[in-house]
Design a protein around this nucleic acid. Structure first.
Lengths: 185, 185
DNA sequence: TAACATTCAGACAGACCTGTTCGTTTTTTC
DNA sequence: GAAAAAACGAACAGGTCTGTCTGAATGTTA
């Protein structure tokens, strides 16, 4: 087996999201992934680092997915914002969605000086930056404001969609985002 | 000392919100509140129950505060929605605000069958119900939708305001809520 | 097949976890 | 001021936590 690291990360991801980070011990992670403890600690120097790699991986996958989906709509910079809302709804309504990882990171490690918390904030800021950038390219006047407001709706919608999957939160969050976009054009 | 229960709950609240729930052991809680362990377990039969009482207490305080503040505006049912937005901004920008407690509960206990998770969902639903009710009294046509959309914005804004306190999230969340309200009148 | 690198299972350390059970001391009540 | 109730400190049980270390087994390369 060559992709031991990947295997560990996959198992850790599943455990972190189904049981929580603190509730997922290293012993459980190695047992589920069929790996020796020393091997895990060879690929990840500490559990904190494993958590951070989990956050990074999830974030990378999200941006890779959404950038690919948006690639052919980049020309029409207005339409790209509305397409973004549709993709957002798709993203959080897939059965694999288990909440935003950096929400888990920031809540389970509330201490601002903790590396996991710090990186979680970084990821939230990155999302705001990404959305503001899209708004700016769409010619929105106060792109900073719309970008953060979309972030607020997307994060809130993700939270509630996860808590109450059949309450229509994803669709309503999308519609709220669309309303805001139209109001700021 | 008569209010031992209150003392324990206060200390537990501070610890839960500054270190996280799993990271706050019963030993720490009793040490900080100067109480014997058996006493804590007399007032709270388990740590789970203590967590749930923490969630309940925080929720009660919120509704008591906001209902009192809104009491004199109940006559003008339209204005009450806008006043609500102002109060929301106030609530999450006070220095004592440390995020929505039921977010902590639902994230730290992701298992839907866990009592803490279950109660956290209940509190989120209660918020939606409360906001939908206000919208209905204001004569909003689709009060259910606006209620949930306000919930999404309020929860998302609370999350981001906590992560990045000086980014203007609270004000922008408020403005986004106002925009949505106006659009649905 | 021989030499080398990797991974294995499992024990170990030292600390922390929730919850129970002791007598002993303090506080309340009459 | 005496009887009753409550809270105290401290130990205990049984378990889990992260991280380190060992020698044996496995896999890779030449």
């Amino acid at each position: 087996m060559k992709n031991i690291r990947e295997k560990i990360l996959t198992v850790a991801t599943q455990l972190f999201e189904s049981r929580g980070i603190h509730a997922s011990g290293v012993d459980t992670i190695i047992a589920e992934s069929g790996v020796a403890k020393a091997t895990l600690y060879k690929y990840f120097p500490s559990k904190n680092q494993l958590i951070i790699e989990y956050l990074r991986e999830k974030s990378n996958r999200f941006y890779a997915w959404i950038n690919e989906k948006l690639a052919d709509k980049r020309s029409d910079s207005q339409e790209v914002l509305f397409e973004l809302c549709e993709l957002y709804e798709q993203w959080i309504t897939t059965p694999e969605f288990n909440g935003l990882p950096f929400h888990i990171g920031s809540v389970e490690f509330p201490d601002p000086t903790h590396p996991v918390h710090h990186y979680s904030i970084e990821l939230s800021n990155e999302l705001q930056h990404y959305l503001s950038e899209l708004a700016a390219m769409a010619g929105i006047k106060d792109a900073q404001t719309l970008g953060q407001q979309l972030t607020i709706i997307f994060e809130g919608g993700a939270m509630i969609e996860r808590l109450s999957p059949d309450s229509g939160a994803a669709r309503r969050a999308k519609n709220a985002a669309i309303t805001l976009i139209k109001a700021s054009i």
